[in-house]
Amino acid sequence: MGGKPRVAFFDFACCEGCQLTVLGLGEPLIELLEHVEVVTWREAMSEKSEEFEVAVVEGSITRDSDVPRLKRIREQASTLIALGSCATLGGPHVSANRLDQSDLLTMVYGDRAREFEAGEVRPLSAEVQVDIPIYGCPINADEFVSVMKHVLLGRPYRVPNQAVCHECKLNQYECVYDRRQICLGPVTRCGCDAICTSRGHRCFGCRGLVDDPNLNAAREVLEEHGYRVEDILSVFELYATWARPEEGLGIVEPRAAVKSRKGSEPWRFRSSI
């Protein structure tokens, strides 16, 4: 491509917080603009263009009428980046899929329900090929910069596939389990630099599951900590509903000998989350 690659930002159903994170980058954003030309970005500028090489798309697909627009973006872009949990996983509003659509519309819009369209909430990958997913709710700004550098260099981006524990331990944060809370860190994809556990929160799983999560272990461990299956599912459903494999949730009891004190004598936890 001649000249600077042209970048366009788009959004579907989302809070636009991930784009806001990019806008808030400060100096690195200015430096990035040395290398790219932003041609469309509703949140940041009034100009628009249909000509671009890199599309950065935030948000999930919730209406069938959104699909043609997404497909047009896909056709135009040589690289399509899905930005944030909504675009990569469907986002927290995937929970709407559990309800009846017309009930849901009535619940939200009352008498005017028929004026609105709603459908199954799904990630971009359900409709088009995504080249690079940037997970997170919101995204990690540093990861966005890193992804852009990879795109500019023509280098494939290796999406992090370790658990959040990896980054949590590298940063030496106190283990959430040692604070007598549960945490989705052991099965959640890292790349966030363990930002939630650094602030005393638990991991909510916003980057989705790692490629090969041991859900059997997760369920067993959480049950030992006093949670019921419904609680466990509701923890996962915030972000991992779309991707949650139905298999692998059965429990196989390992021999007691391989469990340490910590496993065999579960602490007493409150039974709801």
Binding site: P28, E31, L32, E34, H35, V145, S146, K149, L152, L153, Q162, A163, C165, H166, K169, L170, G185, P186, V187, V210, D212, P213, N214, N216, A217, A218, E220, V221, V252, P254, V258, K259, G263
Partner: peptide
């Protein structure tokens, strides 16, 4: 069956020494 493969055991280990290598570019590219 119990292991998450989260790597915590090796990351916190005082004798483990395996490492991965990655090139990181400045924004000058």
């Amino acid at each position: 069956l119990r292991c998450y493969s989260c790597g915590t055991c090796t990351i916190v280990c005082p004798t483990c020494f395996c490492y991965d290598v990655e090139d990181r570019l400045d924004l000058t590219l």
